[in-house]
Design a protein around this nucleic acid. Structure first.
Ligand code: MN
Ligand code: MN
Ligand code: MN
Ligand code: MN
Lengths: 225, 225
DNA sequence: ACTATTTTTTAGTATAGCCTAAATTAATAT
DNA sequence: ATATTAATTTAGGCTATACTAAAAAATAGT
């Protein structure tokens, strides 16, 4: 049953693996060198180097020129890092009064602290939260994720209703925009109108405010119906 | 008044500088390459390399073959790292129920997280603590330290009394020994007897238990009278 | 199918941080 | 004062992670 122990990754390898994991989520195809390069803000040549290393450690399957697939071991490790990232985000928001647009960079550093007991105690201290401040599910220590069904706001029909459960984009700019228009995780929305021409829509938030949202915004809000 | 901004140090440079700062505390003389090498568990050749780099960044004064002195900038930076280290230690003990012998390694990682706001909020969240779990003073954000007068238990005369305010050695082995014999920060002690031959002493802790302590132990307990 | 374009990899270089072995300087002991 | 010893630095090498430029492979357009 229990195979070789999971390999130990460097700070940098953890970041690449996390990026590959996230890119794998969208679409079943292999992840391309260029996509990783864009995500990681490094040059493609550096990515090729790193892919060889991650391949050697068996956290990805790497066939030159054909993109990469994450392995089971890779998934476990990526989910551990994601778990830490999201728990720290909860800590920052719930305990240190950070706003949801301030936590990402700091969590990107904190996620690499290596101490099993630290994360267990943190989890306990936070009351075993299931979702982070952006609505993303927090994997348990075995990497199991209880994700709720969710779909982009753009897919909701006119007069359809639902609740904002997560955001796809965690950039400060986007989150501050949401703050400005009064949108937040948990808000109830109703689609009033959809403009086919530009993909924009009009919605009602908490049955109070009517807001126009561009396609870019609408694609990054996730709804549970 | 305000000079050039302080240089940005790498993770490794921060660790070396912190070590140099601590070694500077004991005795006014320059810190030797060998002492740093011992403290950092790296070879002297690696230390020489690093001293050149730290000298280039003006956080130490480096004269080849004559040991190093830390500069004002260096002191400020070292104290910032120490502040972070000790605040995280308080967090781990007070909030996450770590025992005082478990916090050192984790804090040695956490101390490098770069976020001013994080440390300010953490400080506030902890209630602006003045001392860490080992009794060491926590510098404020300007590097000012309000240290209390303290001297090694070995210096207390027979029938002298005092309170344990800090420990010099923060190793798990030493701290667990103190737990075992019922010594802790804040405990009141009275020296019953001193053995000149081996430097050991007999003390009364909280007027209850009589304990024999070796020279090694006695040198690492700090007392306020 | 063949060429043009895009993507990816390789080759070669740089920096940080470590190492060992050799050379150099300082300290010490007679 | 000189010789021996100890401390320190230099030289050269290794690995990790980046980079640019060039080569190679895959893909797209006709
Ligand atoms: Mn990260
Ligand atoms: Mn998040
Ligand atoms: Mn450290
Ligand atoms: Mn401490």
């Amino acid at each position: 049953m229990s195979e070789n122990p999971l390999p130990i990754l460097t700070y940098s390898e953890e970041n690449y693996l996390k990026a590959i994991f996230h890119l794998s989520e969208e679409g079943k195809k292999g992840v391309s060198t260029n996509d990783i390069s864009t995500e990681m803000k490094t040059r493609p040549a550096s990515v090729s180097d790193m892919l060889r290393k991650l391949g050697d450690k068996s956290v990805i399957e790497y066939r030159k020129y054909y993109g990469v697939h994450i392995t089971e071991d890779g998934k476990k490790l990526a989910l551990q890092t994601i778990r830490k990232h999201r728990l720290w985000e909860v800590f920052l928001v719930e305990k240190l009064n950070f706003s949801w647009d301030e936590v990402h960079e700091v969590a990107d550093e904190l996620e690499h602290i290596k101490s099993k007991i630290l994360i267990q105690r943190l989890d306990e201290y936070l009351g075993f939260p299931k979702f982070d401040p952006h609505g993303d599910p927090i994997p348990d220590e075995y990497g199991d994720v209880r994700s709720r069904p969710r779909l982009p706001l753009s897919e909701i029909e006119i007069s359809g209703t639902g609740q904002i459960v997560a955001v796809k984009d965690s950039s400060a700019a986007f989150l501050r925009y949401l703050d400005k228009v009064g949108a937040y995780i948990g808000a109830r929305i109703k689609v009033i109108d959809k403009v086919e021409f530009d993909g924009s829509i009009e919605i009602l938030v908490d049955n109070k405010k009517s807001i126009f949202m561009s396609k870019e915004v609408v694609n990054n809000i996730l709804i549970m119906q």
